[in-house]
Design a protein around this nucleic acid. Structure first.
Lengths: 153, 153
DNA sequence: AGCTCCTGGTTTGAATTTGAACAAGGCCGG
DNA sequence: CCGGCCTTGTTCAAATTCAAACCAGGAGCT
């Protein structure tokens, strides 16, 4: 390819900012959720997906894909959430292999209680810091990058 | 605050794209570096910082801060890198408590051998996917967000 | 010196993540 | 219906991460 081998100053700035923001933001969100609701950021995301799904339940694999997480990692987390009573497993009638993770009422309550503070923090630390143009650029640019990575696995 | 409680469609798109890109990119980079050079992405970043530092050495704390990583996490990684012969520890004459992590020649070689492929992948998966405007917006916007998070610890 | 508080790194143990191996069902051509 | 092959989810051991507790060593004050 005719691409330059290294990154110029602007590209380096973007790359570093991207990595730094990701690391810092994740740590903050994790901390807040653990203190406030006793769940990790990953667990919060699991609850969000389940809550938004029809019948508040999803197959393990669907969930793993949606979270860009390994299957074994998800098995672990669902087990934890099940112990905490926020989720329960249900096996599928059609396909014996399949397992549905279902959000319990307790899980829904924890989610509803945690969501406002979580969203407020996402806003404060990221969304509201960006100008409208930057917001659009991030959505478009990083959205394209994500799709690209999902496309060529 | 008079801020809306939830995120609108555009904001949600940006937020999801940001999280997805971070997760996917990290996984890819980690994979490539492990296959190609036998080191993790975090270890690669450690080598990069050391290589760029005067005398190719940095204090443990400086390194931990630069990587947005916990001190204990860094202790672990430096121990691993030391076992692999890519880094060695040196205690400071002035302050007995302080420890310098120094890049060895072997470490420098591993870095030089891994860097081109790594940069090429960063380019392919992120940098070259962004338009020039998007690149600037990411650098500015996420840079501002990072500084903000570092400012109010 | 003696005392207290701050700093730099390490240790420790629990929680989590990872990837490979596994068990069991499905799916499909022969 | 059989056999090979793909898919689902779990299990397992090893590697990594995290946070809290822990050692010293400095720094400043009396």
């Amino acid at each position: 390819m005719g691409r330059p081998a290294w990154l110029n100053e602007e590209e380096t700035r973007a790359w570093h900012a991207f990595m730094a923001a990701g690391a810092l933001l994740n740590r903050r969100l994790d901390q807040q959720l653990k203190e406030g609701a006793g769940i990790s950021h990953l667990q919060y995301e699991i609850l969000v997906r389940l809550s938004a799904a029809p019948d508040r339940e999803l197959r393990m694999t669907e969930l793993a894909d949606a979270l860009y997480n390994s299957k074994s990692g998800l098995t672990y987390q669902i087990t934890q959430l099940e112990k905490a009573g926020l989720v329960h497993r249900r096996s599928c009638a059609n396909d014996v292999r399949a397992v549905y993770a279902c959000l319990t009422d307790a899980g829904q309550r924890v989610l509803e209680q945690a969501a406002p503070g979580h969203v407020a923090l996402v806003r404060e630390l990221l969304i509201d810091v960006l100008t409208p143009d930057q917001l659009t650029a991030v959505a478009d640019g990083l959205g394209a990058a994500s799709r690209r990575m999902l496309g060529q696995p």
